[in-house]
Write a protein that binds this DNA or RNA. Structure first.
Lengths: 195, 195
DNA sequence: GTCTATACCGAGATAGAC
DNA sequence: GTCTATCTCGGTATAGAC
């Protein structure tokens, strides 16, 4: 079966996603044009619309892909019954996952306001599911007496904000290795939840 | 002295700033048009250019104003020689200041990438000065033996990220009073820096 | 200082040939 | 599936009358 000339569906789709991700992360969704994305991939604008109905759908698919990646990867990790161990693996996982995908993370935090209300609701509910995973760990640890925390929800927000902040300063090849960064943050979190 | 008809320089300037701040915070700098800002103030577009040379300068003045407000307000607070007390007042100050200006804070964190390189450098150096204030407190507390921390710079990033995260969920009139929020975060920070 | 009018450009998206 | 060409709209910014 000879292909239609210039037809490359299987590889063009992912390349569009990758280009959009890079450009959205660097300049922001609103500041990036469909022409720029097309140029990055080596297409004319019109061709983009074979892959996405519009610009918004491109953003949504990036955000949804990222959130599902996050939830699925965490769910696939082995869990223990020991609260302190569970918390440690959450902390290390969160840092490692976020360090490895700075662009996707950046978009996930910055571009929520560019979603239409219904898309926003969908993405927000995925984020909440992730937060709930940590809240559950904290609640169990408090029930078992391992953790001393005032408010599990607030502690969840505090921990996640602290850990996610790593992406604002961490650069590959910097002063600290990823493991060292994890060690330091785990030290802070561990002490913050124990008396 | 009769005024020129329709001339209101003293009040129009601040109103433009306020409208820009609100719109930039709600929709993002790149997504807001000069026409929208003018409409919000009750002007035609052209009139805006009596107050700002261009859109970028409007953003810069908001960011610079916010950062100087932050630095000056902190500098005006009384400092003690007691590291634990200094850290507590930093934590409470940071939360209170950020809670009170959600829009300015949001813009200060989200719109840095829409600055031209030289403007970015200026704003970044102001932010660094603020971070250094906390690092200094931590260093002093470590030297005095009050704090047990691995890395003052990293602890600075961790604490500031955690505290600033308050703005993502706090709403006036919510479950917790501002003071209760401060109490909880101070508990977490205090434990995180002590053994 | 504000207005109206406009220059100029680039945005998102579509149509139809190949 | 991609291209060229184009539609329509709204963007920033300016000119000149009042």
């Amino acid at each position: 079966m000879a292909r239609t000339q210039g037809s490359h569906a299987e590889i063009t789709g992912p390349r569009i996603q990758a280009a959009a991700q890079r450009l959205f992360a660097d300049h922001g969704y609103a500041a990036v044009s469909m022409r720029q994305i097309a140029g990055e991939v080596g297409l004319q604008v019109g061709a983009l619309y074979n892959y996405t109905p519009d610009k918004q759908a491109l953003l949504v698919s990036l955000l949804e892909g990222h959130m599902h990646d996050l939830l699925d990867t965490w769910a696939a990790l082995p869990q223990t019954v020991e609260p302190m161990q569970n918390l440690e693996s959450f902390v290390r996982f969160h840092i490692a996952f976020h360090m490895a995908r700075p662009q996707a993370v950046f978009i996930a935090y910055m571009e929520l306001r560019n979603l239409t209300p219904d898309n926003f609701t969908r993405i927000e509910s995925l984020r909440r599911r992730y937060e709930d995973a940590l809240t559950t760990i904290l609640d169990r640890g408090r029930a078992s007496g391992d953790f001393h925390i005032d408010d599990a929800k607030l502690t969840t927000f505090g921990i996640i904000a602290m850990l996610t902040g790593v992406t604002t300063w961490y650069r590959d090849g910097g002063r600290l290795t990823p493991t060292e960064v994890q060690d330091h943050y785990w030290n802070m979190v561990r002490r913050a939840v124990t008396a």
